[in-house]
């Protein structure tokens, strides 16, 4: 009885059943298996963003002119404040659902530990019934927010030494 009432007054009642996968992972990311877990019978579109370790970085100025010699990366070491990172990733998933109620499944996974060039480090995937429902923007929002507020840091190791990569964003109250 209660269930019926809820269905009537809350049209988005069904979103409670939408899958949300959040993890800070120490093992390899398996994209196909992950996507499978956020596909529903109603899903017709999945947008998957994955970030990789870049082995060679060239900084570009205006008109794509290379500013200096490419810089080589041997590997990156990621660390996380795991419980807060997972709480913030869950918060980002909630923000995505607020902004794009048509999004069905969400997966936000960050790998930590030592990661070599060509390795996927992060995955943000969103599914929806159709591609024109904001699902591209939702995935984009997810990776941008992760880079701003999720407590994860990386140290870069190259032929000439090691250095911490520092972000720039200063979170505001409530973020």
């Amino acid at each position: 009885m209660l269930r019926e009432v809820a269905t009537t007054i809350a049209p988005d009642y069904q979103t409670m059943d939408y899958p949300t996968i959040i993890a800070v992972a120490e093992s390899e990311l398996h994209l196909d298996a992950l996507i499978e877990r956020i596909i529903l019978p109603t899903t017709g579109a999945a947008v998957i963003f994955t970030g990789l370790v870049r082995g060679r970085t060239t900084r570009h100025g205006p008109s794509q002119v290379a500013l200096d010699e490419p810089q080589e990366t041997l590997y990156l070491e990621y660390e996380a404040y795991k419980p807060m990172a997972e709480a913030k990733m869950r918060q980002i998933a909630d923000e995505i659902r607020q902004k794009w109620p048509s999004v069905e499944g969400i997966a936000i996974i960050q790998r930590i530990g030592r990661l070599y060039p060509r390795t996927p480090t992060v995955v943000i995937a969103c599914t929806a019934a159709h591609r024109d429902t904001g699902v591209f923007e939702a995935a984009r929002y997810g990776i941008d927010r992760l880079k701003d507020v999720v407590p994860i840091w990386k140290k870069e190791f190259g032929p000439n030494g090691e250095f911490w990569v520092e972000g720039e964003y200063i979170p505001k109250p409530g973020e």
């Binding site: 480090t121 992760l146 407590p151 990386k154 911490w164 964003y169």
Partner: peptide, 22 residues
């Protein structure tokens, strides 16, 4: 948390630089 916040009892506080995940 921000400068004016009073530390709650038995708080777990974390200090770190701006984040750089992804």
């Amino acid at each position: 948390a921000f400068d004016a916040t009073v530390l709650p009892e038995a708080a777990e506080i974390a200090m770190f630089p701006p984040v750089s995940g992804g």
